[in-house]
Computed example of a mutant assay.
Amino acid sequence: MKKSALILALLMCLAILAGCSNSTQQDAPAPSTGTDAPAPDDSASTPEPDDQLAAIQKAGKLVVGVEGTYYPFTFHDETTNELTGYDIEVAKAIAAQMGVEVEFVESEWDSLLVALDTGRLDTVINDVTATEERREKYDFSDNYFYSARQVVVKTGNEVGLHSLEDLNGKKIATNATNSWVGRLEELGVEIVPIDNTDQCATMVETGRVDFCMFNTIVLGEYMIQHPEAELEVAFVIEDDINEVAIPARKGEERFLNEINTALQSLRDDGTLLELSMKYFGANYCDDPRVK
């Protein structure tokens, strides 16, 4: 009897242990296979660009450095004292294309590019020639103005000047400080000294000399003041052309692309040509080397 009770008790203990084991296995969490890992949150927004264009758009303004004393690019109207000029209107038009206001900061020329370096200015729009030396330090927009040295003759070009080779044996009215005097003498040109632009133009018109050489800006201003002048451009000296563009600090690609897009729009809708005619009396927004 005692032996039967002992066996029965042993069997009951085994049954209880088996039940506990099954319960433990059922309650234990299944090992992770990786398929239940939380999915990445694709709703997170892409970080906003942190560059000059973003800063301009956030501020709502384009800060432009100008001289304010450089006629006819940036100057003050004598009557209203309003800041105006070719580059002032170009800058305003670019800012409008970008959807921001423009703020002009006036300073002496020597300090303008320094202010661009330090970030006090977004750019300088003040007849900035994109020289090779400057291109090493700054990125530049597409050219929007061309300042060239031109051979100018009396209307009709009866003297038949079409290239530098044609200048041999001809007379030029120019001042002694003209940087081209030495080269002109090498070309066989006779130098007739004068003191100012008016004298130069008059001597060409009266036939006392065959030609003169005017910079784009000088000729444009003279023709606006003397619309009756019988002068025309015989040809442009192609290795003496200043390409004017808009500088930006190195690496600001989005800003520069925005400037180029604006300039192309102003070129396409005729704004650049209209401003060139207004301030210079001729088209200086197109490359004179492209026929």
Rank of each mutant, 00 (worst) to 15 (best):
V100D: 09
V209Y: 02
A91W: 01
E274V: 05
L53Y: 05
L275K: 02
K61V: 14
S43N: 08
E238F: 05
V102K: 00
L263C: 09
F104V: 01
R149W: 09
T174G: 08
F280Y: 05
P40C: 11
T129F: 13
A262H: 10
N157G: 08
A282M: 14
E89A: 06
L164S: 10
I191L: 11
T177A: 12
P72G: 10
V102T: 03
I194D: 12
V209S: 00
V290A: 15
G65M: 01
L83N: 01
I56M: 04
P288E: 08
Y284R: 05
I224H: 02
D287T: 06
S4N: 12
N157F: 04
D269H: 00
R149E: 11
I194A: 06
T74F: 02
S32G: 07
G85M: 05
A248Q: 10
A15H: 09
V128K: 11
G85H: 00
I94V: 15
T261E: 13
T206F: 09
E228Y: 00
M98T: 09
H76T: 03
Q57E: 15
A148P: 03
D110K: 14
V128Y: 06
F73W: 12
K92Q: 14
Y144G: 05
G85V: 01
V236D: 07
T271Q: 05
L6P: 04
R120G: 10
L184I: 09
G60L: 08
I217M: 14
E238D: 14
M12P: 00
K291I: 09
K291V: 08
M203A: 03
F211M: 04
E186A: 12
K58T: 08
P288F: 08
G270P: 07
E106I: 04
G281H: 06
V192H: 07
R135L: 13
S32N: 14
I88L: 02
A15C: 14
Q225K: 13
V63L: 05
L11V: 11
A44I: 13
E165D: 12
Q57C: 05
K171F: 09
N22G: 12
Y138F: 15
V64E: 07
A96T: 10
E186L: 15
Q150Y: 03
A30V: 13
G251D: 13
N196P: 02
E132N: 14
R249P: 13
G188I: 04
Y144N: 07
G220F: 03
H226G: 00
L187G: 04
T74D: 07
W109K: 13
T33D: 11
D117R: 00
V153D: 00
A5N: 13
G60T: 04
D36C: 05
F211Q: 01
A282Y: 12
L62C: 07
A18G: 05
V236I: 14
A93I: 02
V159M: 01
D87N: 11
E186W: 10
K278N: 10
A93L: 03
F145H: 12
I194V: 15
L161P: 01
P227N: 06
N260G: 04
V290W: 03
E108I: 09
G220D: 02
